[in-house]
Structure formats: C-alpha cells, structure tokens
Write a protein that binds this DNA or RNA. Structure first.
Lengths: 144, 144
DNA sequence: ACTATAAAGGACAATAATATCTTTTATTAT
DNA sequence: ATAATAAAAGATATTATTGTCCTTTATAGT
C-alpha cells in the first residue's frame, strides 16, 4: 500500500503526536525505539516531515520533535502520506498506465476509483488528534 | 498498490483473455507490444502465470499464450494478483507492522480492514470474462 | 532430418528503495 | 569558551525490484 518510508513516517508521526499531547518532546533514539524502525533511516524521514511542516524540530539539549496540539486538530494522515509517497495512491492507475482517467480508462479504472475514493476520505478525515484520543484506550500499538 | 510485475501481469492476462475470446493465441512479442511492457521482463512474468495455471502456453510455431473461455468464467483478478504479489494486499498492515490484527491492532487497523475488504471483494468478484465483455464496448485500453 | 518458431530457464545488469556512517550546524548549560 | 546534546546534511553501502541477454527445450512444417 505505502512505501516503507511512508510506513515509518506514519508510525513516527503518530508517536510524536501522542507524546506531544502529554507534553513531551521526543528525540530520534526514543522515536526509533518506540516504533521499531532503523534509526538513521528514520532520521532522514523526520527531516522530510520537518521540512514539510508535519512535525517541528528543535536542536540541542532538551530539543527533539513535537507537534502542537492545535496542529494535530487539522493535520491528517493524507498530509503525511503525500510527503513521502506523493499523490500516487490517489491518482495512480491500478494497471500502472501513465494515462488512465475517466475519458481514457483502463478496464479496471472505475472499479479502482471507487476504492481509492474511500481510502482518500479515510486518510483525509483521520486527524492526528483523533488517533491520539483513540490511543488513550490503550489497545493500539506501533511496533512489531 | 501493486508491484510493477503485478501490473504487467494484469495487463497481459486481460489482453490474452481478450484475444483468446476471439479465438487467437498470442505470442510474447504481440503481448508486450499490446500492453506496452518490456518484452524480456514480460516473458518472466508469463512464465509465472503459466506455472500457476492462470494462462496456458504452447511452444513452437502457431504456439503462444491463451486462456480457455471456461476458465475465464472463474478466473478472477485476485488469482493474478496473488501469483505476483502474494496476499500482502489483503493482510499487510497499513503501518507496516508484522503483527497487526483485530486482537493487537495498530491505530489504523480497523480503518484499513474496511477498505481492504472492499478491494478484496472487487478483485475476487471481477472475472476475466467480465472484463473481456466490458472491453467489447471499446472504451477501455491497456497501454500508455 | 532440418529449419523456423516460440516458450522456458539461467545468468547477469541497471535502477530504485532502503539503510548506514560521518560531518556539520544549532542550542543549552556549565 | 567549552562540553554535551540533538537535528541537518552529505556521502556511501546494501538490498530488492526491475529489466536484459543468451542458451535450451519443445513443436510444427517442409
């Protein structure tokens, strides 16, 4: 579904959101341990998330990554996915055709459009704050 | 969504089905030109499809690939996808976790299950014969 | 038997994705 | 100023995917 980079990005973002919500900034080591991801690779991904204003980063002692609670209300999963995987998940043809649209469709086009639309809605309608609230139930996990 | 191999496989299978339906066997060159795919690579994929009884292959002059009309009635897209990409599309976690299920879910698990279920149904309920019939409308294409 | 056709199989090459390592920059506290 | 912490940036390495090339096997027609 998503690239590995994107999967790590989603896990990292959700973890950072969760920690930020309880007032913690978290550093790279903490993040990669919490989400069970390769540390150096995760650093690269966090750089992208920072550049694209998904997360905030502060250097130096007591620094780390965080997301403001206000931002969590509007930041959705779609924003994270787009940074790492672009919009291919929404526009890409199921059969890999470069040009495939309502006017010039592949045989599966209309069947895929319906499913993709749902995925899109799900990703766009799920904010980080919702997930953080969900996770207070303590039945969800981010590793293994 | 799918690997490139799987995309080529789907396009090739649909094309072979279409041609078989009008009584033609098709060879590698014809297939790779029709679906605009790298020929040698497509050969490898056709081997897998043949081994897994998705398509039939006959060597020698007047040989080529084909699918029997009876088989088209039951062969669905899911069967093709499984040969190339396995069942990861159905079981894989959206966040890339190895263990993620109803008992031990990731924060997106239940949201993903719903979408995957639809994809699964679509792939399982779409037979090659249906697609071939659709394509008689002549608005669908398999390349570019 | 010989030739042409076409798939199957094995070995290899190129590219992209994933992952690591090292150096630099920014910040804080002493 | 110095040391310690932590992210940013750059270079490099590994692995998986995609893609090509060459040889072998099977079949049909002459």
């Amino acid at each position: 579904m998503f690239s590995k980079s994107c999967e790590y990005a989603l896990r990292a973002t959700i973890f950072i959101a969760q920690q930020s919500h309880i007032g913690n900034k978290v550093n790279l080591t903490t993040i990669s341990e919490a989400i069970d991801s390769p540390q150096a690779f995760t650093a690269k991904i966090l750089q992208q998330l920072t550049k694209n204003n998904i997360v905030n980063a502060i250097k130096g002692p007591h620094g780390g990554f965080f997301i403001e609670t206000e931002a969590m209300k509007t930041l959705n999963l779609s924003a994270v996915v787009e940074v790492l995987d672009g919009d291919s998940i929404y526009t890409g043809c199921g059969l890999g055709l470069k040009q495939c649209n309502d006017k010039k469709p592949c045989p599966l086009h209309f069947k895929f459009v319906a499913i993709r639309e749902e995925l899109k809605n799900m990703l766009q309608n799920t904010t980080l704050l919702m997930l953080v609230n969900d996770m207070e139930l303590d039945i969800f996990h981010l590793k293994t």
